[in-house]
């Protein structure tokens, strides 16, 4: 399943390009101190609003800071931390979903009730509420993300687990006395991976847009740290005299989010609905439904 997914994906040029973009961006973010030509927080009033030069490829901002360096350091809160929050919600959702799907019965009923309640709150509003209570700050937004998003993953993973634990080879494994944990890691994780990947890549887009939006409003990361939405917020002050400062961070967001969008779409296609059995179809429906519901909000 996983191998087939990768094989299908490698045929799609757009998907491979998107994946490459994402990998490069992530790497640049991790190795920011080595990639960035300057200290992103170094103020140099002499270079205020300087246009691009050999030393400063993308020019300087209102405090004379290197725009390129700020852009590269901005990957960390704008992309990397969002990825971390996403992984945490996947992990939480996976644990809860596995418990619900594997043990069924009352446990399942209760967990699903809780999920229903979580899902009946509009995501954007709840993120704002959490930030409103805890105060502005990047970590508060990330906490809000994890709190709000795990239920999505829990629900989808539960559905997958329910279906796969009915399948013959899992029943057989159960009958031959292999422990629950080993069945989960050996048999169920690989097959649910695809569904999770589709939803995760789709939700990555909405999370990145949200976090930059909140930073833009001043509810996210606090100055002087670099973040793409924050950079746009700073550029907005001088929007009419120096519109070019809006360009680089804005394009950075568009490129990365587009890459995730294309990747998410390619993943869905690579799951190849034509080869699926009727059970698979049902699963695809659930995933598809979640993707649209999830896409914003």
């Amino acid at each position: 399943m996983l191998m087939r997914l990768l094989r299908n994906l490698s045929k799609d040029k757009l998907a491979m390009t998107s994946l490459a973009v994402i990998v490069i961006i992530v790497a640049a973010g991790i190795f920011a101190p080595w990639c960035a030509p300057h200290d992103p927080e170094e103020v140099n009033m002499k270079l205020r609003y300087a246009s691009s030069s050999w030393g400063y490829w993308l020019g300087n901002d209102h405090l004379g800071r290197c725009v390129l360096s700020r852009l590269i350091y901005g990957i960390r809160p704008s992309v990397l931390w969002v990825l971390v929050a996403l992984m945490m919600s996947v992990l939480l959702g996976a644990i809860v979903g596995f418990i619900a799907g594997y043990f069924k019965g009352k446990t399942d009923a209760w967990i699903m009730r809780v999920c229903d309640v979580m899902l009946s709150f509009p995501g954007y509003v709840m993120t704002l509420a959490v930030v409103g209570i805890l105060g502005a700050g990047l970590e508060h937004i990330l906490i809000a993300f994890v709190v709000m998003k795990w239920a999505w993953f829990a629900r989808v993973i539960r559905t997958s687990v329910m279906q796969f634990s009915e399948m013959e080879y899992v029943k057989f494994a159960k009958a031959s006395g292999i422990g629950s944990f080993r069945i989960i890691t050996k048999h169920i994780v690989p097959v649910t991976f695809a569904d999770v990947a589709v939803i995760a890549s789709g939700s990555m887009c909405s999370m990145m847009l949200q976090i930059s939006g909140l930073s833009f409003l001043g509810l996210g990361i606090q100055a002087p740290h670099a973040e793409w939405g924050m950079m746009l917020n700073e550029a907005r002050e001088v929007m009419f005299s120096r519109p070019e400062l809006m360009l680089a961070p804005g394009l950075a967001i568009v490129i990365v989010v587009s890459a995730f969008n294309f990747l998410s779409d390619a993943l869905q296609i690579a799951l190849n609905p034509k080869l699926m059995t009727s059970k698979g179809k049902l699963r695809k429906k659930e995933v598809g439904k979640t993707v649209y519901e999830y896409s914003r909000g």
Partner: peptide
């Protein structure tokens, strides 16, 4: 249309707003 839709949904709304205002 599909390709365009992926790019358009990737645009931060406030950025698009700023460009249009400008």
């Amino acid at each position: 249309v599909r390709g365009l839709s992926f790019v358009l949904t990737a645009i931060p709304s406030y950025w698009l707003a700023a460009i249009l205002i400008w």
